[in-house]
Nucleic acid binder design. Structure first.
Length: 577
DNA sequence: GCCGTTTTCGGCCCGACTGTTTTCAGTCG
């Protein structure tokens, strides 16, 4: 028996159906229904396949009888008949064509029907020979646009996204510089960067100013900006040296709340917000809230006012993904913050592939206000860089004891990041592990293992008496490597049952567990741990990105083990129970 | 295709821009 499709696979199937139905000319709301179902699958904190088997899947928002049937077909046969049929009608090249700016599904379909164009290559050839203008609604400007887009490589790849830490590094510098400008009054970062998403595709900045035109012109003068298009009195657009687009909007103070809310998004949050508003006879846009009864548009100076006027509870930006934050019974969580963290339980030293000593890491952690840390160098079978033999780990225990004597004000735990072997066993013997204070188990090898075996391997590790926590549980790397196949529901259940902590690894390209899985884990009663996985003193600061993911997962300090003072944390460890 | 303080049919967010067009559909965010 093959494993059930993951929520991500189901979401991709619905997205593909949405694309295909759109090409097929379906009414927009049918297409939107599939996109909405895809979002539901991506955000679901339990297995959609599992719910389908239990017959409860239609309780999910946006999934009704028809989509349930399609899910059943996908589970039973591995495919959806409607998708098979549409795939046979519309070549994949048609979808690639719609990646070009100005060419959507309607117009791509028209070129396919009237000129037989079904690939980027055919499109380019037709543009070069000026054949595109033969189709009604297409002209010379479109032909030129096609050629320049294809020459620029658009269409060969999806739009590039930048990891959050890179985007914020630039975005926060730009915001600081604009705030220092004499004409500026208020400057705030909006968009997905403000929501602390995994990655962003541009930076949105909202401002008020005593001289709006002067502030708009100032954007192009910043050292972070490589080029800027002609600014006007209320907007400017620039490109950073790394190619990240930056949009600045300067508004009147009375309107600041509307703009900041509008440009913070997400799209799904804003759509749901506006739908909720319509039910109250109100219409929300970036310009204000139009009241059907009075015909007047209410302008809001603050975001809080926007939500209050709509009868909604203010959600922190990280929650604005339409994952329940707009519900009538929404109770705003007291989200975990960097200042809540008391310890960091995953870091490396020169004993393996780190760049600092035990003492250097300890002193730097103490400077960050931590009360305890664990030294968790890679283990004996680590396939790359230095590794720590059992004999060296024995020596490491002594070195940590010595460091504890020399460094005051912080508790240093002797630990390891032990490899979880394909068998599910750690790669040190139990006797050695039992003499450590702390053990993180991580998978670093055989990523291609099938789901049922990988799940068994992971659960065996979780059930091991000396493994306190699982490091980067899914192995994903944002935008470069997907998660290995894993029944995450089963893993979470095992972790909750055995009091094994699940890590949110804060490395900015990992953030693993992700927001959806971390939320699911906390809901299921598993204890979450947020670790920097630092390999040098400076990257202890990566904790920030783990906090960002935890906040997007609605986590409060009580859900996160290392918000506790040392005695309480020590008692939470599996070995202390 | 979903859904219901307008319930089982008829709705289903908001606004700007573009190129091509005689008044707007499609695209985009």
């Amino acid at each position: 028996m093959t494993a059930d499709p993951s929520n991500l696979v189901i979401a991709a199937a619905f997205d593909e159906l949405a694309d295909l139905y759109e090409l097929d000319g379906a009414v927009v709301h049918r297409v939107l229904a599939y996109r909405s179902a895809a979002k539901t699958a991506r955000d679901a904190t339990v297995s959609v396949a599992g719910m389908t088997r239990k017959g409860t899947v239609t309780s999910l928002p946006g999934i009704g009888k028809t989509l349930e049937e399609k899910l059943v077909a996908l589970l039973d046969t591995g495919t959806i008949p409607a998708a098979e049929k549409l795939r046979a009608t519309y070549p994949p090249g048609l979808l690639e064509m719609t990646r070009l700016p100005g060419l959507g599904p309607k117009r791509a379909r028209k070129l396919f029907d009237e000129l037989g164009i079904d690939s980027l290559e055919m499109l380019r050839a037709a543009a070069e020979t000026q054949k595109l203008r033969d189709a009604r609604g297409f002209g010379p400007k479109f032909e030129a646009s096609v050629l320049s887009s294809i020459a620029a490589g658009i269409g060969d790849r999806p739009a590039q996204r930048v990891l959050l830490h890179r985007a914020l590094e630039i975005g926060e510098a730009i915001v600081q510089a604009l705030r220092a400008h004499p004409a500026s009054q208020r400057v705030e970062l909006a968009g997905s960067a403000r929501r602390r998403a995994d990655s962003v595709k541009d930076l949105d900045i909202i401002a008020t100013a005593s001289d709006p035109g002067a502030l708009a012109r100032a954007l192009g003068e910043l050292e972070e900006i490589e080029s800027a298009s002609a600014p006007n009195e209320h907007a400017a657009r620039g490109l950073t040296h790394t190619g990240l687009p930056v949009d600045l909007r300067v508004v009147e103070p009375e309107n600041f709340g509307n703009l900041l809310q509008h440009f913070t998004g997400s799209r799904a949050h804003n759509v749901a917000l506006r739908e909720a508003a319509v039910r109250r006879g109100l219409h929300v846009s970036e310009y204000g809230i139009l009241d059907d009864e009075t015909g007047e548009t209410l302008r809001c100076a603050t975001e809080e006012e926007v939500y209050e006027r709509l009868g909604l509870t203010y959600p922190e930006p990280e929650l604005r993904e339409d994952r329940g934050e707009l519900a009538a019974d929404f109770a705003p969580p007291r989200l975990v913050a960097l200042g809540d963290i008391r310890g960091d339980l995953h870091m490396h030293t020169t004993a393996s592939d780190g760049h600092a000593s035990i003492e250097e890491m300890a002193l730097a952690a103490r400077d960050r206000g931590y009360a305890y840390i664990a030294i968790t160098d890679h283990s004996a079978t680590h396939g790359f860089g230095n590794h720590v033999t059992p004999e060296q780990l024995e020596r490491q225990i002594e070195l940590v004891a010595q460091a504890n004597e020399r460094v005051d004000g912080i508790q240093i735990l002797a630990g390891t990041e032990t490899n979880i072997l394909p068998s599910g066993s750690p790669d040190y013997d139990d006797d050695l592990l039992s003499r450590l204070d702390w053990v993180v188990g991580s998978i670093h090898t055989a990523f291609g293992t099938p789901e049922n075996e990988m799940t068994k391997r992971m659960i065996a590790a979780i059930e091991h008496p000396w493994i306190d926590a699982i490091g980067h549980p899914t192995g994903r790397k944002i935008s470069t490597r997907g998660p290995y196949a894993l029944d995450i529901d089963a893993v979470i259940e095992a972790a909750a049952r055995t009091h094994t902590m699940l890590e949110i690894n804060a490395a900015p390209d990992r953030r693993d567990l992700d927001d959806v899985h971390a939320r699911a884990a906390a809901q299921a009663g598993a204890m979450i741990l947020i670790d920097s996985d630092a390999h040098r003193v400076a990257t202890l600061a990566n904790m920030r990105w783990g906090i960002a993911t935890a906040r997007r997962a609605w986590l409060e300090p009580k859900h996160v083990a290392n918000t506790r003072p040392w005695p309480q944390f020590a008692a939470l460890r599996k070995r202390a129970r």
